Simulated scan of single mutants.
Amino acid sequence: MVSAKEKAQKIIDENGVVVFSKSYCPYCRSSKALLNDLHAKYFLMELDEVDDGAALQDALEEITGQRSVPNIFISQKHIGGNSDLQAKKSQLNGLLKTAGAI
């Protein structure tokens, strides 16, 4: 059986842009809105809607040192959370192009 850490890493490795989110989180909504406004393609995992969400969140903390959501990756690099993504607004088009997301 695949561990939560292996599963999270596989998702990160196989997708240009990944947002680990919770459906009710306002910061997650803000990040998704920004990416949607840019018409970015991204892999979305709502941790509160999957059976292993808690385990994945623990695994993400191991991988990144960040426990909070959203937990965002672009081109397999950990970007951080919503404030980190918003702070990169000016570079986002370039980052998303490099990731093949737009």
Rank of each mutant, 00 (worst) to 15 (best):
I11E: 08
K22R: 08
L60R: 06
I74G: 07
N15A: 05
F73E: 10
L47A: 02
D48M: 09
Q86H: 12
L38I: 05
D52C: 12
M45V: 15
I11T: 12
S90G: 02
S75Q: 13
Y42H: 09
L38G: 00
K5E: 14
L60K: 07
T64R: 09
F20Q: 00
Y24W: 15
K32V: 12
K10G: 08
N71M: 07
M45A: 13
S90Y: 01
S75R: 13
A33R: 12
E6P: 11
V19N: 03
S30Q: 15
E14A: 10
P70V: 01
K77M: 13
S31L: 11
K77Y: 07
D51N: 14
L35N: 03
Y27F: 15
S23G: 13
S23N: 14
K5W: 06
Q57Y: 05
L44A: 01
L44D: 06
D52E: 14
A4P: 15
S68A: 10
A87R: 11
I11V: 14
S31Q: 11
G16N: 04
L38H: 09
F43Q: 15
F73K: 05
K41Y: 07
R67M: 09
I79S: 01
Q76R: 15
D58Y: 08
L38M: 15
N15V: 05
L47P: 02
Q76F: 02
N82Q: 13
I72Q: 01
Q76T: 11
S30N: 13
G65W: 00
A54E: 15
A40M: 06
I74Y: 05
Q66I: 03
G80N: 03
V17P: 00
L44V: 01
D51E: 15
L56H: 02
D84I: 04
E46A: 10
K41Q: 14
I72L: 05
N71E: 04
D48Q: 09
L47V: 01
I79G: 02
K41M: 10
D13Q: 12
R67E: 11
Y24T: 13
F73I: 09
K22M: 07
L35D: 00
M45D: 14
G16K: 02
E14G: 05
D48S: 08
V17L: 04
S68F: 01
Q91T: 13
P26T: 00
E61D: 08
Q66Y: 10
D37I: 05
K7V: 07
G16D: 04
A59P: 09
V50I: 12
